[in-house]
């Protein structure tokens, strides 16, 4: 049994843990209210914010939300649409009308084929979790260079840093371009040395991202990073 106090040391909770609270709270992410008790449903850090009790999860798969920028792999092509694998439970569907080109019916394959890598945005997610993607918008495109790495979705914010500060530093130190997809995929483009150094930073985040002193160590590592200069 444990209480959630704001301002106190963050506490790690596990599924089934009863959270004691004297106040009337709302149950947020990772909390369920059953039999007059607040119960944690995920492993993660307990958080009490305003009047909501929630768990910041530290593990879990990507759950698409509309507006998410994602990096996908084309998995199938039909006459008038593409299916893209986006690291979620379901493939994203990209209709011809939301492609960045004017596509004739039946000519979808001429623009994008199986194995192509795209930056897209989630247009909508319906109740049955079907995902519609769009490639109409700034920066949404088929990728022709660079490479894609993966990172757990719970670690993306730490990787990016406040206001994308880490990304900007990494990109300038390594002379690369970096795009972080909300679906746990990161696109890096540049010279091989630069790509390699960003890849090492991703590996470091994978292994140490949950440590309390991660951010300081990570920023130190970024500052030591050098690309091909």
């Amino acid at each position: 049994m444990s209480g959630a106090k704001s301002g106190a040391e963050p506490r790690l909770v596990t599924p089934g843990e009863v959270i004691e609270t004297s106040l009337e709270m709302r149950s947020g992410v990772g909390i369920t209210y059953e039999n007059n008790q607040y119960i944690s449903t995920r492993i993660g850090w307990l958080r009490e914010h305003n009047d909501t009790l929630s768990v910041d999860p530290i593990q879990g798969s990507y759950m698409p939300r509309s507006g998410d920028l994602v990096i996908g792999f084309i998995e199938a092509v039909r006459n008038n649409l593409w299916f893209a694998e986006i690291n979620g439970a379901f493939n994203g569907l990209l209709p011809m009308s939301l492609a960045p080109w004017k596509v004739e019916f039946g000519a979808a394959r001429q623009h994008m084929d199986i194995g192509d890598v795209i930056i897209a945005r989630v247009q909508e997610v319906d109740e049955s979790h079907s995902v519609v993607l769009t490639m109409k918008g700034v920066g949404l495109r088929k990728l022709k260079n660079g490479c894609v790495e993966s990172l757990g979705v719970q670690l993306l914010d730490k990787f990016r840093g406040e206001n994308n500060e880490n990304i900007r530093n990494m990109a300038s130190k390594s002379d690369t371009r970096i795009v972080v997809g909300e679906n746990g995929r990161i696109w890096i483009d540049g010279e091989p040395e630069g790509i390699q150094s960003v890849r090492e930073l991703i590996q470091f985040t994978k292994h140490c991202g949950h440590h309390k002193d991660f951010m300081a160590k990570f920023q130190e590592k970024i500052n030591k990073t050098r690309g091909e200069h």
């Binding site: 792999f73 998995e75 199986i114 194995g115 990728l143 260079n145 660079g146 490479c147 894609v148 091989p192």
Partner: peptide, 12 residues
């Protein structure tokens, strides 16, 4: 699925 970028990168 083999992402096209992966094959290209491995060749580079």
């Amino acid at each position: 699925l083999v992402p096209q970028l992966l094959r290209q990168e491995l060749a580079d």
